[in-house]
Design a protein around this nucleic acid. Sequence first.
DNA 1: TATGTAGATAGATGAGTGTCGATCTGGAGT
DNA 2: ACTCCAGATCGACACTCATCTATCTACATA
Lengths: 117, 117
Amino acid sequence: MSVDLELEPKTKRPPGEPCCEPVVYPDVEREQAERMARIAKALGDPVRLQLVDVLRKHAGKVCVCELVPLFDLSQPTVSHHLKKLKDAGIVGSERPGLWAYYYVKNDALKEFSEWLS
Amino acid sequence: MSVDLELEPKTKRPPGEPCCEPVVYPDVEREQAERMARIAKALGDPVRLQLVDVLRKHAGKVCVCELVPLFDLSQPTVSHHLKKLKDAGIVGSERPGLWAYYYVKNDALKEFSEWLS
DNA sequence: TATGTAGATAGATGAGTGTCGATCTGGAGT
DNA sequence: ACTCCAGATCGACACTCATCTATCTACATA
């Protein structure tokens, strides 16, 4: 699939035509790109990245009441970030009673991690 | 560093105190988190993610005039996305003459990739 | 049932983003 | 010198986002 290229566009060419042949890309990737961009976007905030980092370092579930004081932010703001992460499929949550617990869903990060490396 | 926890906040407690002891986090990570979030943010758009994908699949430098027709977007918009990627340190560019060539700087993605896996 | 509390939701606001058409810049070819 | 063209920059616009305060929901304890 990946054609090796180092294409020099030809200098002289009839006007009105593109400067070089489009060598690639079937947009086979469009959908996958959107999926992964959604994940990257969710990670594209320092607070959320730290939240994920904390959750990842603790194998189990972590109580929200532990997460909030880690940041110099209001409780609703932290809640908002957790929701964003949840919507992106990066974390999951449980709320057995009064407290809510969050945990990382590693599957979501896996595809992204694999593409990246 | 990573303390194992599955902390149940105690139900009965004196009012005015936090529901559970903050178990973690020295913000040793703040700076690193910001650096990585900057990269994630740059990747958090389908177009940019595809641009990086294209550049990664071609080991060499790729002419901008090849990249533009891959997307259903205006030339300035593609240029804008390339700039974002460049500002995040993900790609570099050369402009020997009339044409501009972009390439991936793998170092930038490395730290992020390592944290992720 | 009444009160207190953890966390989610709503609404507002200021800052940032993706996109475009128009313009600018500077190397190439005549 | 003059023109042409590739790519970057500018200005505008609509939309999204991070954050806050205020409020709502629902479980627990008395």
